[in-house]
Lab assay of single mutants.
Amino acid sequence: DETGKFLVLALYDYQEKSPREVTMKKGDILTLLNSTNKDWWKVEVNGRQGFVPAAYVKFL
């Protein structure tokens, strides 16, 4: 149950560059965990948590 969690859509592919980031593919649906930083949002994708560039995702 994803109640209270926001979902975001990956607009572009992103390859993680550090262990704190996660890789996503364009079209992936991600669970948004934290968006307090304007540049990097914490998400969960494929069972992994990490950061992606905020400009690469949008709210569903």
Rank of each mutant, 00 (worst) to 15 (best):
K17M: 13
V43N: 00
K25H: 10
W41K: 02
K17D: 06
D39E: 12
W41G: 00
N34T: 07
T36K: 13
E21T: 08
S35W: 15
V45G: 07
Y14Q: 01
K5A: 12
F59I: 15
Q49C: 09
G4M: 12
F6Y: 12
G50E: 01
Y12V: 12
P19S: 13
T31V: 15
I29P: 02
Y56K: 08
E2H: 15
L33N: 02
T36D: 15
L9C: 09
K58F: 09
A54E: 03
A10H: 02
L9D: 01
G50C: 02
L11H: 04
A54C: 06
P53H: 02
T36E: 14
R20A: 13
T36S: 15
F59C: 14
A10V: 08
A54N: 03
W41Y: 12
Y14N: 00
D13T: 05
D39R: 10
G50R: 01
Q15E: 15
K5P: 13
K38T: 09
L33P: 00
V45P: 00
W41S: 03
T31L: 15
M24E: 00
A54L: 02
T36Y: 10
E2W: 03
Q15N: 13
K38N: 11
K17C: 11
A54Q: 05
R48D: 04
D28C: 05
V52N: 00
K5H: 14
D39C: 12
A55M: 11
G50I: 03
R20V: 12
D39W: 13
D1L: 12
D39P: 02
L11A: 07
Q15W: 11
Y14I: 01
G47M: 05
V22T: 06
G27A: 03
R48W: 03
L30F: 05
F59G: 07
E44V: 07
L60G: 05
E2C: 13
T3Y: 14
K26T: 07
G4C: 13
L9Y: 13
L7A: 06
L30M: 15
E16I: 05
P19R: 09
K5E: 11
R20E: 13
N34W: 07
N46D: 14
N37M: 08
E44A: 09
I29N: 03
Q49E: 09
K25L: 08
K17Y: 04
F51D: 04
Y12G: 06
N37W: 07
M24P: 00
K42E: 14
Q49S: 11
W40E: 05
K26Y: 05
P19L: 10
T3K: 14
V43K: 00
A55H: 13
D13E: 06
G27L: 03
K17E: 08
S18N: 12
K5N: 12
D1G: 14
G47L: 04
L60M: 11
F51W: 14
L9K: 08
Q15I: 15
L33E: 02
G47T: 05
V45E: 03
M24F: 09
A10T: 03
W41P: 03
K5D: 10
K38E: 11
L7S: 08
D39S: 11
K5Q: 15
A55I: 10
L60A: 07
L7N: 07
Y56N: 06
E21Y: 05
Q49F: 07
Y12I: 10
D13M: 03
P53M: 02
K5V: 11
A54G: 04
W41C: 05
G50P: 00
Y12T: 09
S35K: 12
K26M: 08
Q15C: 10
K38I: 10
G47C: 06
L11D: 03
R48C: 05
G4Q: 14
D13R: 01
L32Y: 03
F59S: 10
D39A: 10
L7W: 10
T31R: 14
R20W: 15
N37R: 08
V52S: 00
T3M: 12
W41Q: 01
F59T: 09
K26I: 06
E21D: 06
Y14S: 01
W41L: 08
V43Y: 00
M24L: 09
K5Y: 13
S35H: 10
L32M: 05
F59P: 14
V22D: 00
I29S: 04
A55K: 14
L32V: 13
K58R: 13
K25E: 06
E44F: 05
D13P: 06
K25Q: 09
K38Y: 08
N46L: 07
D39N: 12
T3Q: 12
I29A: 04
L9M: 13
P19Y: 09
G50W: 02
W40T: 02
Q49T: 13
L11I: 12
F59A: 10
R20M: 13
Y14P: 01
G4F: 12
L30T: 01
D39F: 14
E44H: 05
L9G: 03
K58N: 08
L7Q: 12
A54H: 04
D1M: 13
Y56I: 07
D28T: 06
V43G: 00
K38M: 09
T3L: 14
V57C: 10
Q49V: 15
K25A: 09
K26E: 08
Y56Q: 06
Y56P: 00
G27H: 04
F51L: 08
P19W: 08
